[in-house]
Amino acid sequence: MRFIMPLINVLAFLLLAPLFEGLLRRLTARVQSRQGPPLVQPYYDLLKLLGKENLNSAGTWPFRLAPLLAFASILVVVAVIPFGFRAGALAGRMDGILVVYLLTLGGVAVLMGALAGRNTFGLIGASREMVTMIMIEPVLAMTIILGAVKLKTLTLVAAMPFASGAGYGVSTVLMLAVYLLALQAFAGRQPFDIAEAEIELLEGPMIEYSGPNLALFKLSAMLKRMFYAWLFVSAFLPFLRTGIYPLDMLLQLAAMAVVFAVIGLVGATNPRLRIDQAVRYYAVLIVWALVAIGLAVKGW
């Protein structure tokens, strides 16, 4: 069973990520008093993109490799996480730092594609994407480190600290608040969809991509968003655990849908911030997350 779990993770995430995306779009539409697209629209979008031409303005291997690397890195993350509160065979060989780095690698792939695409707008977008990544990665890392401090282990059980027996303390509540405040940035939604900023940067790093390459990037972004929703559920909602593996998975998915609803609601009711405003916001989040870690080390 432990050896099938990574496969279950990958399948569940690959199959459901577009559905969550559809949910997000639908909810946004409702807030905006629109009908919105059908729930399955993201599947159609991906299929359509897969059938289209791959335009290549760079003609170099980094440009072609980038979407693959973005997709691969997030997929590896998905494969190793303890989805449904069960650590699969890979979870013991991987740890939180690796997950943080792999997510960063995915971001790097986006940047590499943007730089290889040579487009001015893409480069500005890449610059913003990198800055966002630098400023938001610590919050992600500290969420996992919080579990690590409590459990004295950095392996991926640290991503489900309470399911592994740690207590729910002041530090957890504080980190939960910080995570929620960073959620839009993790998800790349308003007010923090700054790197894509379609209105001035025309999707920024993605500008030169089309067809299947774009589909891979889009799918990676959906998977990433789903991962962040899962991490929230896994790290902060321990009471969803019944001990029955399939039921736990379903419960987690249901909770993730709620997280997506929050993302959608917040996204639809906020304008986009500028990157200079956003970094100051992130800096404050980092400080609070550090406070949470400090409290956790002190055993709170």
Binding site: G92, R93, M94, L154, S164
Partner: peptide, 8 residues
């Protein structure tokens, strides 16, 4: 702790 400290 219950598991390895860290592994990669």
């Amino acid at each position: 702790g219950p598991a390895a400290g860290a592994a990669v």
